[in-house]
Amino acid sequence: QADPVQPVDVPKPQPATFDSLDAAVAAQDTSSDDDARCLAGAVYFESKGEPLSGQLAVAQVIINRAKSGRFPTSVCSVVTQRGQFSFVHAGIIPSIDSSRAAYRTALAVAKVALRAAWDSPAPDALFFHARSVSASARMTKVAAIGNHIFYR
């Protein structure tokens, strides 16, 4: 009679330690899943051209929303939620040329955020807007990065 199979404790992978956000972004591979693509699209359309820390903060807002219980529970559902992001039309993220350097950066930033490979400069933020937009007085400012202000 064979011995029953015993479960094996597999250590949970720990995020890599990087010396900088630049290094964390540069270390990401080019593969992607649905969450990474949706998050990269949002980072691309909302914050391309912003500092990496601002792009990471945008990604973190979307992840925070998915975890909050106040928004849809998946990254893609948060990004495509009606009325949340102006680049989304009829629940569809516009196509992006994946060979664009700004998209490759957005995808790497999305992966850093999804893997928690670098601390977000706006860790508790659920909202952001451009500096040119007035905010509601009910929100608490968490950070101002590049052309965006982040709130919880």
Rank of each mutant, 00 (worst) to 15 (best):
V88Y: 08
G83S: 09
V133H: 13
A110E: 03
A135H: 08
V142I: 13
S98D: 10
K141D: 10
S31T: 15
V8G: 01
R115I: 06
P51K: 02
S136K: 06
L114I: 05
R37L: 15
P72E: 07
Q55A: 01
S47F: 04
A108P: 00
Q60L: 04
D19K: 10
F18N: 04
T140H: 15
A117V: 02
P13F: 11
K67G: 02
V75F: 07
V8R: 09
A24F: 13
F18T: 05
D35Y: 07
V78W: 02
R104L: 14
A24V: 04
A135P: 03
T140P: 00
A57D: 01
V109H: 00
A117D: 12
S86N: 11
I63S: 08
M139T: 07
P72H: 08
V8M: 05
P11S: 09
T80V: 09
G69H: 12
C76T: 01
R138L: 13
G54A: 10
V88N: 05
T73I: 05
V142H: 03
V142D: 05
R138N: 12
I92S: 06
A42K: 00
V5Y: 04
A130H: 15
A125W: 01
D9N: 11
L114Q: 01
A137G: 09
D97M: 05
D22K: 08
R82Y: 15
R65F: 09
S32M: 03
V133I: 14
R138K: 15
H129T: 08
R37E: 15
K141S: 13
P13M: 13
T73A: 14
V142Y: 09
A27V: 04
S99R: 07
G91M: 05
V133D: 09
G54F: 04
P13L: 13
S99F: 04
D124H: 13
Q60G: 04
A26Y: 03
S134Y: 05
D35E: 14
P15C: 13
L107Y: 05
S47D: 02
S134Q: 14
T73L: 02
F128S: 07
F127L: 08
A27Y: 11
Q14D: 15
A16T: 05
D124S: 07
A40I: 04
Q84Y: 12
L56T: 06
L114D: 01
G54M: 03
N64E: 08
A90T: 05
A16H: 10
G91P: 07
S74G: 08
K67Y: 13
A23E: 12
Y44I: 02
N147S: 13
S47E: 00
V78C: 05
P7T: 09
T140Y: 11
R104F: 02
K141R: 14
S120M: 10
T17N: 12
A106R: 00
G91F: 09
S77A: 15
A137I: 05
S132D: 12
T105M: 10
C38D: 06
A26V: 05
V142P: 02
D35P: 02
S99C: 06
P7K: 08
F128K: 00
I63F: 06
V58F: 03
Q55M: 13
F127Q: 02
A42P: 02
L126P: 05
L39N: 00
K12Q: 14
M139Q: 06
